[in-house]
Computed example of a mutant assay.
Amino acid sequence: MTIYRLGVLKGDGIGPEIVNATVDVFKTASRKANIDIEWLTLPMGWEAIKQYDNPLPEVTTEGLKNTHGWILGPHDSASYPPDHKKNLNPSGVLRHTLDLFANIRPAKTLPGIQSMVGEADLVIYRENTEGFYADRNMFVGHGEWQITEDVVITAGVFTRQAIERIAHAAFQMAMKRRKKVTVVHKANVLRLSNGLFLNICRDIAQQYPEVTIDDYHIDAMAAHLARRAKDFDVIVTENMYGDILSDLAGELVGSLGLAPSINANDTIAMAQAAHGSAPDIAGKNIGNPTGIMLSTVMLMEWLAEKHNDPKLKEMGTYVEQSLAQSLKEGIKTKDLGGHATTSEFAEAISEKIMRIESR
């Protein structure tokens, strides 16, 4: 039997509470699915600054090389000391240095959660290494220059290689879903950069004749999501647009606090909820772990496919179904109008996992 090693980076704010709750739930699910997982806790964020004077020390990056994937808790980089605040945050470092080119962010209505757009089930594929996020598109430097006190120039980078691989990833996912891809761009104004993105996506579409493709300008797409999110299946777009649209979609279907994601390349993946560290409620045991739990479900599905091990997917399904049942029964954290603490919510999910009939 394969022993899977998964890294655990708890992070800042509510990170330790929601990540601990997630690991507890998945330990229950792993026992239920009869799969062996070794959890490797590594320092990140304020904990790492205090120990190593580095929010993402070498001991952590080296440790991650010996894992199959990892969970990344939220970080509060805005509060880091000035010497660390000016550098890339831990998430940005990992995405950049490990070339985690696909940020995959689903937005799906959940039972017991009020949605502003009715039933919806879509997934956004955000190119994660280039575009208009200057900290991710330079080999050296950050891609922003202050020419004078009153003038700043920012570079956006778009390459065929990066666009092709995110497009393939999006179309491959569409083949497993409802076979529809929507490309989001602003090629009517940014004719070269966004035009390249749109044209390459159209070229890649020819390799997937079963998939229907359409496209929208980013401003129109925000309006369409708010009005008819249920009509969309897989959305593919550049870095900044994907960041904005995925936050919007997460809030529309219930709450950004519920929104999961993974960051992946062809060989490695990390689970990371879309929300922040919520330092104002840290230590109160009231943070909502749903986002990081569902992110870890996504990680298990990714690992199951990569390692051809259905037991990993089975484990994720146990968690996903039990979490959905808990929400349906009204077992919710305070942010969702419930009364359960973080740990009580996790305990309810674990109890439901144990009651599932073994397959």
Rank of each mutant, 00 (worst) to 15 (best):
A48T: 06
E351Q: 15
Q146N: 12
L94R: 00
G316I: 05
L225R: 03
A33N: 10
A340V: 06
M116N: 10
K186L: 07
L225G: 03
E320G: 10
D99P: 08
N87G: 12
G69K: 00
H142S: 13
H96E: 08
G141S: 08
P260S: 14
N239D: 03
F26C: 04
I147W: 07
Q321S: 14
E58F: 12
P55G: 08
A259W: 02
H96I: 09
N89I: 10
H224F: 13
I356F: 09
K179Q: 12
E149V: 08
E17Y: 10
T237F: 04
N54M: 10
T317V: 15
N188G: 08
S358I: 14
G7S: 13
I331H: 04
L323D: 05
S350Q: 05
P55N: 11
A187W: 05
K284M: 11
G338L: 07
E130L: 05
Y80W: 12
S350H: 03
P310V: 09
G254K: 01
N288K: 03
I14L: 12
W39V: 11
T154Q: 11
H75C: 15
A33D: 05
L299S: 00
P260L: 07
P279T: 12
R202N: 13
A229W: 01
A187C: 09
L192E: 11
N87L: 14
F232Y: 10
N20D: 15
I235E: 03
S277I: 03
A167W: 01
T61G: 05
R228L: 13
A174F: 02
S91M: 11
G11S: 08
L294P: 00
D36L: 13
P106S: 12
M270Y: 01
N308C: 11
L327P: 00
P43R: 05
K179M: 10
E144P: 09
I71W: 02
G131T: 00
E347W: 09
M354W: 12
G330D: 08
N128M: 01
R165K: 14
N265C: 12
I349A: 03
V93I: 14
E314C: 15
L98Y: 13
T182F: 04
G11K: 04
D219F: 11
T333M: 03
